[in-house]
Design a protein around this nucleic acid. Structure first.
Length: 278
DNA sequence: ACTATTTCCTGGATGC
DNA sequence: TGCATCCAGGAAATAG
């Protein structure tokens, strides 16, 4: 389940592999769920465009595209576009040789001028493909690694929703998902059910630090590989080894040995230590 | 404006 | 062994 650190890792890997390549043609599958923009809009935005950059915004992967004319850049920004990929739960972007067997759940294939293919595969179809005008994509929310303390505190003032739900709300912070919300709350010593507005300024300050720490550490370790997550080069991440609460229900807290609790908040399982988190 | 709930989807795990 | 059921979860839609 790719969240910010996994998406960052994937985007960096893809940037290395496909930046500068040109999309010669596009094939899209018949399933409609993965397409947030129309098939024709996606095809039109991608074909005969050079991939100028690949980067992450929240949990989205953004491909900046520029028009190719006679093999050279047009230079006119307005002729560009963006291809936006959200991996959902099980989405993967693979760069492979054209002869590589096509996975059953392949929804898009981009033929590249380097005689390779960029494929979007997603069994569960929670992932989404869309296009936007050049520099036009709005991912909503603020990047957690860029936000400063005061705006961070303001995100939560007056909110009655549980802090866990607020952390998952992409319109506030973008990129934090279930794993990193639980891990951040553990490090900050805050129970996931606490109403955001009731949390002290000091505790929110701890959360501010915790969110950034957790995300940075996870990026450094290539993300968390649970279920079958691998990055663009097929490598697993290692942050799952650092999880202190996520997926550890009943196991002893690494700080105090109390068994880790699991509750459901907003339909999401939430893990915490009842002794370390208040 | 905000909050809570439901829905989408399939593979793997679990239960009988 | 086989079949049914449950669960994972991001975000959009819906309802209040």
């Amino acid at each position: 389940m790719p969240e910010l650190p996994e998406v960052e890792t994937i985007a960096r890997g893809l940037a290395k592999r496909v930046t500068g390549d040109v999309v010669e043609s596009v094939w899209l599958g018949r399933k409609k769920e993965p397409l947030k923009s129309s098939a024709s809009a996606i095809t039109k935005a991608l074909e005969q465009r050079r991939i100028a950059a690949v980067r992450r915004m929240g949990k989205h992967i953004v491909f900046d595209l520029e028009r190719v004319e006679n093999g050279v850049r047009s230079g006119k920004a307005a002729t560009g576009a963006q291809w936006i990929v959200h991996l959902g739960m099980t989405g993967r972007l693979q760069v492979c040789e054209p002869q590589t067997a096509i996975d059953k759940h392949t929804h898009a294939i981009l033929r590249l001028s380097s005689d390779r293919e960029l494929r979007f595969v997603d069994p569960r179809r929670f992932g989404r493909l869309s296009v936007a005008p050049a520099a036009g994509f709005d991912a909503g929310g603020v990047e957690p690694l860029e936000i400063e303390l005061d705006p961070f505190l303001k995100l939560f003032t007056g909110r009655k929703t549980p802090i866990k739900s607020a952390l998952l709300n992409q319109k506030l912070l973008r990129g934090v998902g279930n794993i990193y919300a639980d891990e951040s709350l553990f490090r900050a010593g805050i129970r996931p059910r606490r109403r955001a507005s009731t949390i002290t300024r000091e505790q929110l300050g701890n959360l501010f630090v915790a969110v950034k720490e957790v995300l940075k550490e996870a990026i450094a370790l290539g993300g968390s590989s649970i279920s079958d997550y691998v990055d663009a080069d097929g490598r697993e991440g290692f942050f799952q080894l650092e999880h202190r609460v996520y997926g550890r229900e009943g196991e002893p807290c690494k700080a105090c040995k109390t068994p880790i609790s699991r509750v459901v908040i907003g339909g999401r399982s939430s893990h915490y230590c009842a002794k370390c988190q208040k």
